[in-house]
Design a protein around this nucleic acid. Structure first.
Lengths: 149, 149
DNA sequence: TGACAAAGGAGAATAATTCTCCTTTAATAG
DNA sequence: CTATTAAAGGAGAATTATTCTCCTTTGTCA
């Protein structure tokens, strides 16, 4: 559950940013963003669509996708899984981490020993069986930033 | 580049595991697995297919997908992006980590302060601009393990 | 309030992945 | 070493997730 105050705060930020970016603050956009801002379940676009339909039954799935993309590009939203476009495989079964370029989606291995050990300061939810923990170092690779792009 | 010795070692493990699991060690499977075991670029199924086609031009893309899945289920392979099936969104722009159930794909937030700070013991490749680093705590959630499943 | 660019809706198009169904092959018992 | 058979492979259809196109509607700002 997200506290009401946080939602209000996020909606305010949303409207401000829309203003700054010259994005029209349409009814649809506000409802879509509120669906996202009031969820902590990291919903899929489809789930957002279902939620939004309760308020705007005529909403189009395409509109939801289009705005999710717009919001993400504007930095109003984050993708939990940057590499979701297509499956990426790893035959290295040892413990290691990943360096990920958010632009070109290249992934490089980072040996386990190159990162300080991860420890938890609070126990995990009851019953969760932790198997491994992997660090994603996200940024822009030399090629991508070098390209002036 | 993966050292030849590592590739050989991985191929041995592969054949042993196939034996144990009752998986036929077909020509196609060996070539597919070798393509994976000799790459450190975390290829997509499509890329594996292209690679394998050099040796087996008649290979079918379906076969590549089928085996990638088989290998993954057998623990011979890992998915870099467990959540690749579909986009997952996050309107929480603050620094935080994720607890991910590898079975049901549920994602929960873990506050930044609940994990010891991540520090690098070796510098990143030249020119890589680190933006943030996020920890994925992977395991099985209470519901999924409770289900006896 | 009107003009216009930006946004929305419907559905087609594309991309990634899985499925179906028939043929071929690896494993193994004799 | 061969015959049997279940498992695996191939081709292409089907499904799912996502994007695009094209026309209509609506915020925004003068």
């Amino acid at each position: 559950m997200i506290p009401e105050a946080t939602i209000v705060q996020r909606m305010d930020l949303f409207r401000q940013r829309c203003r700054k970016l010259g994005l029209a603050c349409t009814h649809q956009r506000q409802i879509i963003y509120r669906a996202l801002a009031s969820s902590d379940s990291h919903p899929t676009p489809e789930a957002v669509y279902e939620q939004v339909k309760r308020e705007i039954p005529a909403i189009s799935l395409g509109t939801v996708y289009k705005n999710i993309r717009t919001f993400t590009e504007a930095g109003l939203l984050r993708e939990v899984n940057i590499l979701h476009d297509s499956l990426r495989l790893d035959a290295n079964l040892g413990n290691h981490h990943h360096l990920v370029c958010t632009r070109c989606k290249r992934v490089a291995d980072v040996p386990h020993r190159d990162v300080t050990p991860i420890r938890l300061r609070r126990s995990l939810p009851r019953g969760f069986q932790l198997e491994r923990c992997s660090v994603e170092l996200l940024g822009i690779c030399a090629e991508c930033s070098g390209a002036g792009n």
